[in-house]
């Protein structure tokens, strides 16, 4: 009885307060300096958890809001959930998809269900590969190529409690594409494949290796903000052959080459074109070079700006680049 009585009184209080406040409240839409005025249905752009994805979205937001007058909402979200969001239209577009990790999503949503459409290439390409710290190659130059790892003694430099007598090969997030187990087996390298489980664990392993100057061999990729913080060297793997491409497609376990280059692409919800044709057209044309993307990313990772601030600064200085996306 007491509790319900209390609640009733409190509720009444809230009601009174809301009446009082209704008189004095006015709607001031907040916004940073230089924000453009917008109206209408917001375009929802996904920002996946890495800097490149965030700056693409921020640049697009800036250009759309200031030139089309359409508000843009950035949705920070996991990359797999992005596909479901585009499928039902709760996300309108994503501007950086790494094709190697999303072949199955592309097959389901773009090709089979047709609820998501391909918006073409973003511009930058990415490359997954095997990396070791530079200090390792300085000491053992033969480890700059995979051949060096055939020597059990050299491979053993990478041994840990987890890998026992073999050298440890460290893989990060298992959701990223990997042929490493096959490469190790097919090239007969004395290595053990160990999954660190997450990108954070992988990055921390790198830091630890550099702190103690212990060798580490890992799957890593370019572009990544960490590449500018530590000196990593890519280990040369056999050139990509047709046999490897075929093997990857058929998943027969025979892959024994380097990773192919990933051409990053954009995708949108199938409903975007009818929802906002202008935005759809702009996003289709949107392209950045690797250098341009790096420039914005450096402002975020290096100078500690927010993605929005960095995008605004870049857009102000590069009108010629984005004006090509309009009209």
């Amino acid at each position: 009885m007491r509790t319900s009585g209390t609640k009733r009184v409190l509720f009444a209080g809230v009601a009174i307060a809301s009446l009082l406040a209704a008189c004095g409240s006015d709607d001031t839409s907040g916004g940073g300096s230089g924000a453009c005025t917008t109206k209408g249905d917001a375009i929802k752009l996904a920002a996946n958890p890495w800097t490149g994805s965030a700056v693409n979205a921020a640049v697009a937001k800036r250009v759309i809001e200031c030139n089309l007058g359409t508000p843009v909402e950035i949705v920070e979200i996991d990359e797999n959930a992005t596909w479901v969001g585009m499928d039902d239209g709760s996300i309108d577009a994503v501007l950086e998809i790494w094709p190697s990790g999303h072949a199955a999503d592309k097959a389901t949503y773009i090709e089979e269900k047709k609820s998501v459409v391909d918006l073409g290439l973003l511009g930058p390409s990415a490359k997954i590969g095997w990396y070791v710290p530079k200090f390792v190659v300085d000491e053992h130059p033969e480890l700059a190529t995979f051949e060096g790892f055939k020597d059990p003694e050299l491979a053993k430099l990478f041994a840990t409690a987890e890998s026992g007598d073999l050298g440890q090969f460290t893989m990060g997030d298992p959701s990223y594409v990997t042929y490493d187990e096959q490469i190790i087996a097919n090239l007969e390298l004395p290595l053990k494949y160990v999954v660190a489980g997450s990108e954070a664990a992988l990055l921390t392993s790198i830091d630890k290796a550099f702190a103690d100057k212990t060798p580490i061999l890992l799957q890593f990729w370019q572009p990544h903000w960490k590449q500018s913080k530590v000196e990593l060297v890519e280990v040369k793997l056999p050139e990509v052959t047709q046999a490897c491409t075929d093997s990857a497609a058929s998943a027969d376990g025979g892959y024994a080459c380097d990773y192919p280059v990933d051409e990053l692409y954009k995708a949108a919800s199938a409903g975007l074109e009818t929802k906002n044709a202008a935005a759809f057209a702009l996003l289709s044309k949107l392209q950045l070079t690797t250098d341009q993307q790096n420039e914005v990313a450096a402002m975020v990772d290096g100078e500690g700006k927010t993605a929005d601030e960095a995008a605004a600064a870049w857009a102000d200085a590069n009108k010629d680049v984005w004006s090509a996306w309009l009209g």
Binding site: A161, E162, T204, S205
Partner: peptide, 9 residues
């Protein structure tokens, strides 16, 4: 991870 290294422990 920094203290114990990646792995089972």
């Amino acid at each position: 991870v920094f203290l114990f290294g990646v792995g089972r422990s």
